[in-house]
């Protein structure tokens, strides 16, 4: 009993917990509850018909597929950027460090318009890619480009602080004990970075699945080909088909939740295997 009465340095557990619950309900649970309520008013057949239409299925594949690819690209290159920013000193480092946050701050619509101006077949980059036979704007590749762009800061910003805490001495110790460079990376650096990498990956992925603003400008929005699921939800709502929109929204919610759970599970498993 005396354990429960343990005194804390800062009082107010009841108050802050109450506020947390209220805040979470207000900001998160009520909207999600509304979504589920709308969906629950449908019969199973209607629900299934709404979420399994070939056009909708094609959009799931694109949204989740492109988000996975984008997050994977960011995993590799985001880690690299974080490494460079932490381990080396070079002129303009502060500036580059600040630039990484740009996708957070820039309105996504602006990003989308900028990307399409760049990658359209008449754009600065697009006209050269065109010669090489690569089309980015208005293709699935364009969706991947947009989702990679908006996901970059997540990996960099989660890996960076962990890397800063990781002393270079450990790498030196590993080398002086006879480990090759590759072994040092594999046995010393990666295991300590893995949880942060996973978190960054999960965040970049989750952000990309829900992204709307930048993608609609560069994708071309062709049904079955370059139509992302969030756009389909908007289209349904604009036809006053609130139930259909809510049903697809629910599927996205569940799928994203399952994937995040999986990634978190992996993270927990890797950290338990121990460094």
């Amino acid at each position: 009993m005396s354990v429960a009465k343990k005194r804390r340095v800062i009082p107010g557990f009841g108050l802050t917990m109450g506020f947390t619950l209220f805040y979470l309900s207000f900001i998160f649970l009520i909207p999600v509850g509304g979504l589920l309520l709308y969906t629950s008013m449908m019969s199973w057949e209607d629900f299934w018909r709404a979420v399994s239409h070939p056009q909708v299925v094609a959009s799931y594949k694109l949204s989740f597929g492109a988000a996975l690819i984008g997050a994977t690209i960011n995993l590799v290159f985001g880690a690299l950027v974080a490494w460079v920013l932490v381990r080396y000193r070079f002129p303009g480092k502060k500036l580059i460090d600040a630039l990484v946050d740009l996708p957070f701050a820039l309105p996504t619509a602006v990003a989308g318009i900028a990307l399409v101006t760049l990658y359209a077949s008449s754009g600065w980059v697009g006209q050269y890619l065109q010669i090489a036979g690569i089309k980015v704007a208005y293709t699935q590749l364009g969706v991947v480009v947009a989702l990679t762009y908006i996901g970059l800061p997540f990996v960099v910003r989660t890996v960076q602080p962990v890397l800063e805490d990781l002393e270079a001495e450990r790498e030196e110790a590993s080398a002086s004990l006879g480990a090759s460079r590759f072994t040092t990376i594999r046995r010393v650096i990666l295991p300590s970075l893995l949880p942060a990498l996973m978190t960054g990956y999960a965040l970049a992925f989750a952000r990309a699945v829900g992204e709307y603003g930048s993608v609609v400008f560069i994708s071309g929005n062709m049904p079955y080909r370059t139509e992302i699921t969030p756009l389909l939800i908007v289209a349904k709502a604009e036809q006053f088909d609130y139930h259909g929109a809510a049903a697809i929204g629910t599927v996205m919610l569940l799928a994203a939740f399952a994937l995040l759970l999986l990634i978190n599970g992996l993270q927990w498993w890797t950290s338990r295997r121990g460094v």
């Binding site: 239409h53 056009q55 079955y224 036809q239 259909g244």
Partner: peptide, 16 residues
């Protein structure tokens, strides 16, 4: 033409 399952939907499906 435009509601779900209408003519426009089947045109899109055909094109895909």
């Amino acid at each position: 033409h435009f509601n779900d399952g209408g003519k426009f939907d089947s045109i899109l499906e055909e094109i895909s």
